[in-house]
Amino acid sequence: MNMLDRPWVLIAEREISTKLRDKTFVGSTLVMLLIVMAATSLPAVLVGKGSAAKIGVVDDAAAKVVQQASATVGGKGYDVVRLADRPAAEKAVTDGDVKAALLPGTDGYVVLGKDQVDSSVESALREAASTIGTAANAAKAGLTPAELHAGTKVEVSLLKPGPLPDLVSHFVNIGLALVFYMTALGFGMMIAQSVVQEKESRVVEILAAAVPIRALLWGKVLGNTVLALAQIVVIAGASLIGLLATDQAAVLEVVAPVAGWFVVFFVLGFVALAGLWAVAGSLATRQEDLGSTTLPGQMILMIPFFFSVFAGTSAKTVASFVPIASSMSMPGRMLTEDVPIWQPLVAIAVLLATTVLIVRIGARLYERTLLQTGRRLGYREALALEAS
Rank of each mutant, 00 (worst) to 15 (best):
N2F: 09
M3A: 15
V9E: 13
I16G: 11
P43N: 04
V45A: 13
L46S: 07
G56W: 05
Q68S: 12
G77H: 07
Y78F: 10
P87Q: 02
A89T: 05
G108N: 05
V110F: 08
G113V: 00
S120P: 00
S130T: 14
A138P: 09
A141P: 06
P145C: 08
A146V: 06
A146W: 02
K153F: 09
V156P: 10
L158V: 01
K160Y: 14
P165T: 07
M182A: 15
V195E: 09
E198R: 09
I206F: 14
L207V: 00
R214A: 08
L216Q: 09
V221P: 14
V221E: 13
L222S: 07
T225K: 09
A230F: 12
I232H: 12
G237S: 08
E253S: 15
V255A: 11
G260Y: 07
F266Y: 00
V267D: 03
G275A: 02
A284T: 06
S292R: 15
T293I: 00
M302C: 09
F305C: 07
F306N: 10
S308D: 08
M328T: 03
M328C: 01
I348Y: 05
A353F: 10
T354F: 14
R360Q: 13
A363F: 09
R364D: 15
L371Y: 03
R375C: 06
R376T: 08
A384G: 11
A384Q: 10
L385K: 09
S388R: 15
